[in-house]
Design a protein around this nucleic acid. Structure first.
Lengths: 145, 145
DNA sequence: TTGTTATTTTATAATTATTATAATATTGTA
DNA sequence: TACAATATTATAATAATTATAAAATAACAA
């Protein structure tokens, strides 16, 4: 049986040369579901690659995004860009207080994607469906003021 | 008959003090459909208010966004934030070549919004539903290389 | 209207996310 | 192994956004 995520071949298929840093960044983004920023990734990776530079993280993320292997979510109330390794159209839900982003399921996303694909005339690369508000935990915190 | 857009009362209702600069920024964002960045707004407004500062534009946009009068769309292939005065949930379609953003209708947006409102537990403030790709014009340009 | 106070606007400087550059290191391959 | 192409790193540069504080303006009471 083959491994669930064959990162190496995915990178190669996309024409991206395989290096330990890229593997670490890509697999971190695939494994974690927390939609991190470049800096958050940098801090994580540094535990295993103490000499990695933030530039490498940015280079890798831009490369992965250009080839369509990851998705750029944009800001989440803070001012840095969040990334998502889940490139299937789906809904993200961002909390503008704690800046966490979670995935949720919606039966309408695929229908909407198909609709736009067939009617817009655009050559679509991806979607960023992000609802924002206060998560349950942050709603409770603001009550206790 | 009352005017279609009563900017003054909208600002007042939101607790925002009315100034000529704020009126100009808000009405520009309501009238134009091109989802501009802060700098694009600055350049437009400067034709009527030669001494306006970019800081005022940022202050006003942040204030309008905080009170929920406008929507923050995030980046569109460039690296500055785009704004939208249409706060009804709707679909934006961004071209990553020319960085234009247009609105399109989708019958699924409202259904999706209601679904998330009732099932997520989040206190929702807005949505950013953005599909990206190449617009028809830019597809033609890239063919002629 | 006029005077007073709080709020805004503006100019300037500071911050910070991201990108550019160039030297060094590593990868793929003959 | 050795060569050529590409990647990584450290550093500096860029540019969007925010902070600060003085000057200007809006709200409002008398």
């Amino acid at each position: 049986m083959k491994p669930n995520h064959d990162f190496t071949s995915k990178l190669k298929q996309a024409g991206i040369r395989v290096t330990p840093q890229r593997m670490a960044i890509y697999s971190l983004l695939m494994d974690y579901k927390n939609h991190p920023t470049a800096f958050m990734i940098y801090e994580q990776i540094r535990e295993n690659f103490p000499s990695i530079s933030l530039m490498t993280v940015y280079n890798t993320l831009n490369m992965l995004a250009d080839r369509g292997l990851i998705n750029v979510l944009g800001h989440a109330g803070d001012d840095s860009v969040h990334y998502d390794a889940d490139i299937e159209p789906h809904v993200n839900l961002a909390c503008i207080s704690c800046h966490n982003i979670v995935d949720i399921n919606s039966k309408y996303v695929n229908q909407m994607t198909n609709e736009i694909n067939s009617t817009s005339g655009y050559q679509l690369f991806g979607a960023r469906v992000l609802f924002y508000g206060n998560c349950p935990a942050c709603q409770n915190q603001s009550r206790s003021h």
